[in-house]
């Protein structure tokens, strides 16, 4: 698999992402800065977490306008796979590659804790190693992860099976208590209609080794490795 990680001034989670991709695929991803052009022949582009451009205006709004995002949009339009985690998810939303918005957490608190996610859509390049309904632990570290979209958009997402992950409790129930940032319908991650663009707030890349306290997030990267095994 040929993957590239795109960073912006203020990105700070690219190393974890690199480690997760390398661990699952055995190949080191290309590390790109916002001034670089996207090289050809990529299977996957990843936008990692951080605080790109100091979260000015809105989280991800500045990064979404940077030149490399034009390449990323072209890449996605041609059917390329794109993963955005945390600030990367915010950038995908601001760039219009995924619908909705990410508001300040409803408690106004920055969340730095683990959550439990339920896999709502299996069989994608990002989730094939999980069964639908499987739950796993994932760290969260964000202040603006409160997913919002209007009812028509939400109904479309649900109807087309484009909700990837939901916040749930230990029993796998999508309760209000498990929804720490106040996201509408407990939505933690979503997919594009062609299932090739995925964004989520929690960090699966931060649980890919026993030294990190677990490997709960590894299936996402193994799924990607499997999807592009031949490449």
């Amino acid at each position: 698999m040929k993957a590239a990680i795109v960073t912006f001034p203020g990105t700070n989670r690219e190393r974890d992402m690199r480690l997760a991709l390398k661990r699952a695929t055995g190949r080191d991803p290309a590390m790109l800065f916002h001034r670089d052009a996207l090289p050809g022949g990529l299977d996957l582009v990843v936008l990692p977490g951080g605080f790109s451009y100091g979260d000015y205006l809105r989280c991800g709004a500045m990064a979404a306008q940077s030149p490399i995002m034009r390449d990323v949009k072209d890449f996605a339009a041609k059917g390329g796979h794109v993963l955005g985690v945390c600030n990367g998810f915010q950038i995908l939303i601001e760039a219009g590659l995924l619908p909705g918005g990410l508001l300040r957490n409803h408690t106004l608190r920055f969340l730095s804790m683990d959550c439990t996610l339920r896999v709502e859509r299996s069989g994608t390049a990002f989730t094939s190693r999980w069964q639908k309904g499987a739950t796993f632990r994932a760290p969260m570290a964000h202040g603006d992860g409160n997913y919002f979209a209007d009812d028509a958009t939400l109904d479309r997402l649900e109807g087309e099976g484009l909700v990837a992950f939901r916040y749930v409790d230990e029993r796998g129930e999508a309760t209000e208590a498990a929804n720490r940032n106040g996201s509408v319908r407990n939505i933690a991650g979503i997919l594009s209609p062609n299932l090739r663009v995925c964004g989520l707030m929690p960090h699966p890349e931060d649980l890919v080794d026993d030294l990190m306290g677990g490997t709960d997030g590894l299936p996402m990267f193994e799924s990607l490795a499997e999807a592009f095994a031949a490449a």
Binding site: G101, L103, R104, N105, H106, T107, L108, N146, F148, G182
Partner: peptide
Amino acid sequence: MPKAGVLDPQGKA
């Protein structure tokens, strides 16, 4: 401004 009907946690605080 936050749209009508969109939660405004800052306003609430």
